[in-house]
Deep mutational scan, measured.
Amino acid sequence: MDCGICYAYQLDGTIPDQVCDNSQCGQPFHQICLYEWLRGLLTSRQSFNIIFGECPYCSKPITLKMS
């Protein structure tokens, strides 16, 4: 499936590997796309290497662990 942010399947050789945990959403994202999206939200917060925010599609909580 394509990334829900950039709408591409491959981005710099990677495929969407982050998925919204909401079973009714399940939208996939590239890690870098989701990172940039969450960084741009005023409501997002970060604790060590984990960013907490809202899914761009369903607005439910989503987390991103940076590797």
Rank of each mutant, 00 (worst) to 15 (best):
P28Q: 15
I50E: 15
D2S: 07
G4S: 04
D2T: 07
Y9W: 06
T63Y: 11
N22V: 01
K60R: 10
Q18Y: 05
C6S: 03
S23V: 12
S67H: 12
C6W: 01
G13F: 02
C25I: 06
I15Q: 05
I5R: 02
P56W: 04
A8S: 15
T43G: 12
D2E: 11
C25R: 01
C3N: 05
P28S: 08
D17L: 08
L42P: 14
Y9L: 06
N22D: 04
Q46W: 08
D2L: 05
T14I: 08
D21V: 11
Y35T: 11
H30Y: 01
T43C: 10
Q10R: 13
S44V: 10
V19M: 09
Q27K: 06
T63G: 13
D12M: 08
L38Y: 01
P16W: 02
P61D: 10
E36V: 05
S23E: 14
A8C: 15
H30L: 07
L41S: 10
L64S: 15
Y7W: 13
Q10W: 12
D17M: 04
T43L: 05
D12V: 04
T14C: 08
P28M: 12
L34N: 04
S67F: 09
Y57H: 03
G26I: 08
C33A: 03
C6Q: 01
L38M: 07
D21L: 11
F48G: 15
K65V: 08
P61L: 09
L41V: 09
Y9R: 14
G26K: 08
G13C: 05
I62A: 03
P28Y: 08
Y35L: 08
I15W: 12
M66V: 09
N22Q: 04
Y57T: 15
V19I: 09
Q24Y: 13
C25A: 00
D17W: 05
Q31Y: 07
H30G: 00
G13S: 12
S23C: 07
I62G: 01
L64W: 07
Y9A: 03
A8N: 04
Q46R: 11
F48Q: 13
P16G: 00
F29A: 02
E36K: 08
L64E: 06
L41G: 13
R39C: 05
Y57L: 12
P28D: 01
Q10K: 14
Y9T: 05
T63K: 06
G40D: 07
L42V: 14
S23L: 10
G26C: 03
P28I: 05
L42G: 07
P16S: 02
I32S: 14
Y35C: 04
Q46L: 09
E36R: 12
S23M: 13
W37V: 05
P28G: 09
R45N: 06
I32K: 14
K65I: 08
C6G: 00
F48W: 10
R39E: 07
C6L: 00
W37L: 12
C6M: 06
C33D: 01
S23Y: 04
G26M: 09
L42D: 15
Q27W: 03
S23G: 07
T43E: 10
Q18L: 08
D21S: 09
S23D: 15
L42T: 14
I62W: 03
I15L: 12
Q10F: 13
Q10H: 12
I5Y: 01
Q27G: 00
L41Y: 01
V19Q: 07
N22F: 05
S47E: 15
D17H: 10
Y35G: 11
S23R: 11
N22R: 05
D17V: 11
Q24V: 06
V19W: 09
R45Y: 15
M66L: 07
G26H: 10
D21E: 11
I15G: 06
D2G: 05
L42K: 15
G53W: 01
S47W: 04
P56R: 04
S23Q: 11
L64G: 09
Q27A: 07
W37Q: 12
G53A: 03
A8D: 13
S44T: 15
G40S: 12
I32M: 12
S59M: 06
L64Q: 06
T43Q: 09
C6A: 02
K65L: 05
C58T: 03
I32T: 15
S47V: 10
Q10S: 11
Q18E: 13
Y9P: 03
I32H: 10
L41P: 06
Q46H: 05
F29W: 01
Y7L: 13
L42S: 14
F29R: 00
I50L: 09
Y35I: 12
Q24A: 06
I32L: 10
T63E: 13
G26P: 04
F48V: 14
I32C: 14
Q46T: 08
L34T: 00
